[in-house]
Write a protein that binds this DNA or RNA. Structure first.
Length: 227
DNA sequence: GCGACAG
DNA sequence: ATCTTGTCGC
């Protein structure tokens, strides 16, 4: 795992970051072996308002019953600012650290943010997946600036999001009458697999359980360390 | 034509 | 991401 962590290059400026995305975007694989994802890791980063501390969390969960198998945490600070389109450079280093602390390697990672639903088709989930060469899915809470047709109001309804002729993700309704989530392929899976998995893992709330678990853990630790 | 884009 | 009270609904 440690050699893979070293693979995450840190660009010095935005131009370098964009060039790196363009270079790595060609590595994304949109294919999988069907429904064999049995363990899923949710990833997230929580930031402290004033102290610039950040906490990355990785929660490995069984797909079947959502039982948490392992949790890992990494604390640090993000050097890279938040720039739309370059989120990965801000969050990836700390996420990789948290993942490096896992003993159980999950079958797939779920990221907070875009995969192929990205201006250059290389969002956080793609970056993570390609760097680790592992399946990854992107789940965003906000839509991209692309024409998105609102899915019908009942759970399970979805609409494809296209950039030109290319399908780069979907809007997926996980709860009746609640705004959809935006699912896209990160690496080594298909959009159908990603969409079905995320719907299955969000039986009760808008966001899939792995994301909720990672989110909650980060918040708890942040509140705890702030006392 | 330009800018808007996750967290 | 983060700042926050009440409020509506099951």
């Amino acid at each position: 795992m440690s050699n893979r962590l070293r693979y995450a290059r840190l660009p010095k400026n935005e131009a370098e970051a964009v060039a790196l995305q363009a270079e790595l975007a060609g590595c994304v694989v949109v294919a999988d072996n069907g429904h064999e994802f049995e363990t899923v890791a949710g990833l997230d980063i929580a930031y402290d308002k004033d102290s610039d501390e950040a906490i990355a969390t990785a929660v490995v969960m069984r797909r079947r019953d959502f039982e948490v198998l392992e949790r890992s945490v990494a604390r640090g600070r993000s050097e890279f600012p938040y720039v739309p389109g370059l989120l990965a450079f801000r969050e990836l280093p700390l996420l990789l650290e948290a993942i490096g602390g896992l003993k159980i390697l999950p079958d797939v990672f779920v990221c907070d943010g875009y995969g192929l639903t990205h201006p250059r088709r290389f969002g956080l989930a793609c970056h993570l997946g390609v760097v680790l060469d592992m399946p990854a899915i992107g789940v965003a809470k906000n839509p991209p600036h692309l024409p998105v047709t609102e899915p019908r109001s009942s759970r399970g309804e979805w609409t494809a999001i296209k950039a030109g002729e290319e399908v780069v993700g979907c809007a997926l309704r996980t709860r009746d009458d609640v705004k959809p989530i935006y699912v896209s392929v990160g690496h080594r899976c298909t959009l159908d697999t990603a969409r079905n998995l995320m719907l299955d893992m969000a039986p009760e709330f808008r966001l899939p359980e792995p994301i909720r678990a990672a989110d909650r853990l980060g918040r708890e630790l942040l509140a705890e360390s702030r006392k």
